[in-house]
Simulated scan of single mutants.
Amino acid sequence: AIDAEIKRFGLDYVHLDISHQPPEFVKEHFPTIHEKLLGLGIDMTKEPIPVVPAQHYTCGGVLVDLFARTDLPGLWAAGECTESGLHGANRLASNSLLECFVFGEAAARDILSMWDELDAPPEIRPWDASRVTDSDEEVVIKQNWTEIRRFMWNYVGIVRTTKRLERAANRIRLLQSEVEDYYGSFRVTTDLIELRNLLQAAELIVGCALKREESRGLHFTLDHPQTDPIARDTVLLPR
């Protein structure tokens, strides 16, 4: 509901107000928040608090078995990146703690049990950097990184519409062209690789959202608020 109002009116935040309660009540029940806000110049006993929804950066997706194995040999996964089924279809606060405790240990035990049988990783091919130079435009990466964050939050976010998703898809295509041109001209850095990964993740999220013409779980769209009677598996299939 908060996100819907922010999107509807183009707001940066909405207000949460508890000033109707006595100051002693507020300080006793929310001592840490009260102290933190005072440091920011906000007295929650007298005035409203600006709030926005929190962002979850990863909400599952990688299928694992009971040993935390993925379908890629030699790759185990545990935590918020997985779709383990441990909590059914729920995505609630602190779920990842149990995911990490249970599947983290399962992965460790499984890896140790077959450590001597694991294949050695393939040799890395020689890297030819003779035709590229160090970048003198690192600001390009920073700008693109910031842009992805902003349009994914504003156009994709929690409450979605087809029009905003299409705008996000257009931005992704433009950025992919810019990043590929940059990637072919300068030496590779960790930030540059992560920028490409962010773009690819954004492309998959937006593409999946556009194809799912219903609202289900974390995907809620104003254009298709109903939930289909039969759940479909992911629309993201190997090419």
Results as ranks from 00 to 15, higher is better:
residue 138 E to N: 07
residue 148 I to M: 09
residue 51 V to T: 08
residue 190 T to W: 11
residue 161 T to W: 07
residue 202 A to D: 07
residue 210 L to E: 08
residue 131 R to Y: 13
residue 49 I to L: 15
residue 186 F to G: 00
residue 18 I to T: 11
residue 125 R to V: 02
residue 185 S to L: 06
residue 211 K to F: 03
residue 64 V to Q: 05
residue 74 G to I: 09
residue 164 R to M: 14
residue 103 F to T: 08
residue 161 T to H: 05
residue 64 V to W: 02
residue 16 L to V: 12
residue 20 H to V: 13
residue 80 E to G: 07
residue 22 P to M: 04
residue 103 F to L: 15
residue 93 A to G: 14
residue 125 R to P: 02
residue 17 D to S: 14
residue 139 V to I: 10
residue 64 V to D: 02
residue 158 I to F: 07
residue 47 E to G: 03
residue 25 F to N: 08
residue 79 G to K: 02
residue 176 Q to F: 03
residue 103 F to A: 07
residue 152 M to K: 05
residue 67 F to N: 06
residue 128 D to C: 05
residue 228 D to H: 08
residue 60 G to T: 07
residue 181 D to Q: 10
residue 161 T to S: 15
residue 80 E to S: 14
residue 37 L to K: 06
residue 46 K to Y: 04
residue 9 F to R: 11
residue 178 E to I: 08
residue 90 N to A: 12
residue 219 H to Y: 12
residue 102 V to M: 04
residue 164 R to I: 02
residue 96 S to P: 06
residue 131 R to D: 11
residue 98 L to C: 05
residue 44 M to G: 00
residue 128 D to F: 06
residue 56 H to M: 11
residue 41 G to P: 00
residue 109 R to G: 00
residue 225 P to V: 12
residue 221 T to F: 05
residue 75 L to R: 00
residue 216 R to A: 05
residue 212 R to E: 13
residue 126 P to I: 03
residue 62 V to H: 06
residue 89 A to I: 04
residue 186 F to D: 01
residue 179 V to M: 12
residue 84 S to M: 01
residue 87 H to P: 03
residue 170 N to A: 15
residue 211 K to N: 09
residue 61 G to E: 02
residue 188 V to D: 11
residue 156 V to A: 10
residue 168 A to W: 06
residue 58 T to L: 08
residue 177 S to N: 08
residue 203 E to W: 04
residue 62 V to I: 15
residue 130 S to H: 11
residue 209 A to H: 14
residue 92 L to K: 10
residue 108 A to K: 00
residue 134 D to Y: 13
residue 29 H to R: 15
residue 140 V to E: 06
residue 220 F to P: 00
residue 80 E to D: 15
residue 53 P to N: 09
residue 229 P to C: 03
residue 189 T to C: 08
residue 185 S to K: 14
residue 47 E to N: 13
residue 71 D to F: 02
residue 147 E to Y: 08
residue 23 P to Q: 04
residue 237 L to S: 05
residue 127 W to T: 08
residue 91 R to H: 14
residue 111 I to K: 00
residue 87 H to M: 14
residue 136 D to C: 01
residue 114 M to T: 13
residue 88 G to D: 06
residue 101 F to V: 14
residue 104 G to W: 01
residue 203 E to H: 10
residue 184 G to F: 03
